Amino acid sequence: MKKLRPKTIQIYLPAGDPRGVRVAEITTRIVRVIEIPRSQLQDFLKMPEAQQVSLYFLIGELSEAGLPRTYIGQSGNVGKRLSQHNQENDRGKDFWNRALVVVSITNSLTQTHALFLEWFAIGEATKAGRYSLENGNTGARPHTPAPLEADCHEIHETAATLLATLGQPIFEPLSNTTASAGPKELFYCKSSDADGVGEYTSEGFVVLKGSQGRAEVTPSIRGTSNERLRKQLVSEGIMSPVGSMLEFTRDHLFASPSSAACILMGRPANGWTEWKAANGKTMDEVKRQVVSSVADLS
């Protein structure tokens, strides 16, 4: 379990626009991440970093399963590569509206760094399961000398922190697994049509990998957005048939406990009563009623 340490992060606005180009860096590191709205790509192309070797991320519209879409790439001249992605003939990657590029302040990244970082980033993003990756394949691990590989892991760690700071937690697990988060508080949904485990987080409700629900939906949700979402989760491999059930192949974030329960059970559900702690208390008792009682005392 990774221990988090305090950090100082600086975000610079070249044009003074908080919604425009933003440059983020940890003050003691040599790596910076530049966030570029697609509409302001021409401004980035004027920056010296546009000529550098870079790992980059294209971020855009949600997939049908509700996950933000991303493409992870690398280039020896990132400005030129982003310009190619911006062309009309690059239809396969026309989903993006922002790019984030990882560069070295000392311009010391090599093509070998970039190839390893691309391969490693795709694997880590796939494991995290937060984003729908538009990469056609995971690529092959390039031959990387041990000292250079060690540098790449440090670069990746810095880039991951900066990406999350800029609102793109591509590599962060959905479940609370950091040392500072303390013990997990799990909730269970067990019935004749479900055997699920989940976690209530600051972002929503996460159904954990291995949770199982009924394969067929009830007539009450047929033709609804919930049935369409369920089908899309199956189509994207997030839920997979196992016997007469559907099983989550990875952790998946839902906006609410009720949405999570409905998709898991294949029927309308009130997640605040369906999800229960290990002691049998409902989420409503553990979370909402506790908040209400504290508010009454204040």
Results as ranks from 00 to 15, higher is better:
63 S>R: 04
78 V>G: 02
109 L>E: 11
220 S>H: 12
284 D>E: 13
174 L>R: 05
210 G>L: 01
32 R>C: 06
228 R>G: 04
178 T>F: 10
182 G>L: 11
237 G>L: 01
266 G>S: 08
51 Q>W: 11
89 N>F: 12
52 Q>V: 10
32 R>S: 04
193 D>V: 15
78 V>Q: 01
193 D>G: 01
179 A>V: 11
261 A>S: 09
89 N>L: 07
76 G>T: 14
254 F>A: 01
47 M>R: 10
4 L>E: 14
286 V>W: 03
99 A>I: 08
43 D>H: 11
106 T>A: 08
57 F>C: 04
294 V>Q: 13
136 G>N: 08
139 G>S: 04
274 E>L: 11
6 P>K: 15
178 T>H: 13
27 T>A: 09
204 G>Y: 00
158 T>P: 06
263 I>E: 06
114 A>S: 07
186 L>K: 02
72 I>G: 04
234 V>F: 13
189 C>M: 14
123 G>C: 02
10 Q>M: 14
281 K>G: 11
5 R>V: 05
283 M>K: 07
132 S>L: 10
128 A>Q: 02
213 G>L: 02
223 G>D: 15
151 D>G: 01
282 T>A: 01
165 T>E: 10
157 E>N: 14
54 S>W: 10
187 F>G: 07
194 A>Q: 01
47 M>Q: 10
61 E>W: 12
283 M>F: 02
100 L>R: 05
182 G>D: 09
276 K>V: 10
183 P>V: 10
240 S>V: 02
136 G>R: 15
84 Q>T: 13
135 N>K: 08
85 H>C: 04
192 S>W: 10
290 V>W: 06
284 D>G: 06
24 A>F: 06
73 G>R: 00
186 L>N: 04
155 I>Q: 07
11 I>E: 12
150 A>M: 07
